[in-house]
């Protein structure tokens, strides 16, 4: 069991999201940075879609009541166990009674904490993701609070092997980390002004030539009015060629829509199912993790990518992740010999 002793800024249970119900107005929810979430799960022998805790900027404090295999991936929120720093992107065995705390946010914005066996929580509409506004999913439909107690599921056989190997290295310490970690192509979080690839949106042609140019040449800042639902950006104003009424239709993760005042909004994990603002762009799926790790005040530069290339990048990324999955199991088996 994990007992929360301090909730942090926004800590919620998330998996890949709730799909198949958007036609009923039920938002998808789910993790913001799916790559970090997937890798965190792989490192503790879980299915990629098992729920993790998504931690935001200021992480929570928690106590483990039993020996637990964990992994923390994504942004560096300075995790430590009983005062000693813990490394990201690797399997970590934490002893019963240990306290996991988080300090300042060094890189990125969100970290994912996976535990072997996942969280023993009911699925609502096929997902454990927390849908805060409707109060469903996750832990009682809410972000985690002080004194919440999370029951854990049964670890996989692979997780048991990792645990056994790491237990041998504990040597009286509160935790033991795997020496080996993930290739940097997956772990390097955002440069100071990252480039994010964007396809032309469905209403791209409605915008003035100047606005179209500026989207791909100037930089935009993430404002403080940004959350899991969407990021409001500040930068050059984007204007329509002429006032045009749009009828509401489906939107996507990474849709860049522009309300009439001209400041774009990037729709993210907790986006509404449909929207009525013109869509100037659509972020390529492979670059969504970069966007999700930006925090208020960070800047971003959009570069144009074609729909065809974006889809090819998508397929390539999935292939890489599949290889990574096999690599992890191979590497860990070698380490444990």
């Amino acid at each position: 069991m994990i007992k929360i002793t301090k909730p942090g800024l926004l800590t919620s249970v998330q998996d890949f999201g709730r799909y198949g119900f958007q036609k009923y107005g039920v938002i998808a929810s789910g993790v913001m940075d799916s790559t970090a979430h997937r890798i965190a799960n792989l490192l503790v022998g879980n299915d990629e879609n098992e729920a993790t805790l998504e931690l935001t900027l200021l992480g929570p404090d928690m106590t483990f009541t039993e020996d637990t295999l964990i992994s923390i991936c994504g942004g560096n929120l300075s995790p430590s166990v009983d005062g000693k720093p813990v490394k990201l992107w690797r399997s970590v065995l934490v002893k019963a009674g240990s306290k996991l705390k988080f300090g300042g946010c060094k890189t990125g914005c969100r970290a994912y904490l996976a535990v072997a066996g996942g969280f023993d929580l009911p699925e609502v509409m096929n997902s454990k993701s927390t849908y805060i506004r409707a109060g469903i999913g996750g832990f009682n439909g809410k972000p985690l609070q002080t004194d919440d107690e999370l029951q854990l599921g049964k670890p996989s056989e692979f997780a048991d092997q990792i645990t056994k190997g790491l237990a041998a290295e504990l040597d009286g310490q509160k935790f033991a980390e795997m020496q080996w970690t993930i290739a940097s192509e997956f772990t390097s979080t955002a440069a100071s002004k990252p480039k994010v690839r964007v396809m032309k949106g469905r209403q791209y042609d409605w915008f003035t030539h100047e606005s179209q140019m500026k989207l791909f040449t100037e930089s935009f800042e993430v404002t403080s009015q940004s959350d899991r639902m969407g990021y409001r950006l500040k930068g050059p104003e984007l204007q329509l060629e002429k006032e045009q009424e749009m009828l509401s239709e489906a939107v996507n993760f990474g849709t860049i829509q522009v309300p009439s005042e001209g400041n774009p909004i990037v729709l993210l994990a907790d986006r509404q199912t449909t929207g009525g603002y013109p869509k100037i762009g659509q972020i390529a799926t492979v670059d969504l993790p970069i966007m999700a790790q930006l925090k208020p005040g960070d800047k971003v530069q959009f570069t144009e990518v074609s729909h065809e290339v974006a889809q090819q990048l998508y397929l390539d990324r999935e292939k890489q992740l599949h290889q990574l999955k096999q690599g992890i199991s191979l590497k860990i088996k070698q380490e444990l010999k």
């Binding site: 799909y19 198949g20 958007q22 036609k23 009828l247 509401s248 239709e249 489906a250 996507n252 199912t273």
Partner: peptide
């Protein structure tokens, strides 16, 4: 197919 989402004049 993952899912479909109807709009006023569209289906995604």
């Amino acid at each position: 197919m993952v899912e479909y989402v109807p709009g006023f004049t569209t289906v995604a």
